[in-house]
Each structure stands twice: as C-alpha cells, then as structure tokens.
C-alpha cells in the first residue's frame, strides 16, 4: 500500500509506515488519516518521521487515528526518526505515552 503521503513496508510482524510528506498539517491530515486503518498495521507498527519537517495540532490529530487503530487491534505503535523539536512537541501533549520512540536498529532483528 502506498499513496502520496505514506509508503508502507512490511517484514514479519512489523509494518513501517514511512511518512513522505514534509508537513503533517491541515493540508495533509486527511490523506494521512485515510491510511490509519487496522489493515495497514501489523502487531508492531512503526511510523517513520525521517522526512517530516513540520507537525502541527491538525497533524497530531491525524496521527492519533493511528493510535486509536493500533489500540483497537491490540498492536504496538512506535515512532522512529523523530526530530528533537517534534520529540518536545510529542512530550508536551503526552503523545510519547501512546507512541514511544524506537530506534531503527531495534527493528533489525525482525528483518
């Protein structure tokens, strides 16, 4: 599965959703939310923020759709390649409680 804003990669029990848009904002929120289905997820689902330069509150609302989907399916959701600024923002709203960060090297054993 792939669209303009998300590219999905799957290996074993892991799905990595690479966010392709640089702005997770009002303009990209609908397309991001549209990919937040349980079908897109695996027991371990990782959102990759390597390309993301900006996130605002509308973007956080869109990301929370992944949190809700993951919780409903009993999947674990992680964030990867989160910039220091976005780590600060996630901490402010306590997003980190629902989507802790993971290092890319931690996924190596699943490949």
């Amino acid at each position: 599965m792939s669209n303009d804003v998300i590219r999905r990669e799957e290996f074993g029990e892991v799905a990595v959703l690479h966010i392709l848009t640089t702005s997770v904002d009002t303009n990209s929120a609908a397309a991001i939310e549209a990919t937040a289905s349980q079908a897109a997820m695996r027991p371990i689902t990782v959102l990759d923020f390597a390309n993301v330069a900006f996130i605002n509150s509308a973007g956080i609302s869109a990301l929370l759709k992944f949190v809700v989907s993951a919780r409903k399916a009993g999947n674990k959701l992680f964030a990867m390649n989160v910039s220091p600024h976005h780590q600060k923002i996630f901490k402010m709203v306590e997003m980190s409680r629902f989507m802790p960060t993971i290092e890319e090297r931690d996924l190596a054993s699943y490949r």
Binding site: N56, S57, A58, L64, V67, V68, M95
Partner: peptide, 18 residues
Amino acid sequence: IDESNLEGGMHRGFGMYF
C-alpha cells in the same frame, strides 16, 4: 492526550496550548 479523549474522538484543541 488521555484515554478518555482518545476513545471519544476528541482529538482537537492542542493549538492554543502550543
């Protein structure tokens, strides 16, 4: 974000806080 506003779909309202 807390469990109650997650389940209730209340995902807005962070902007002014930021």
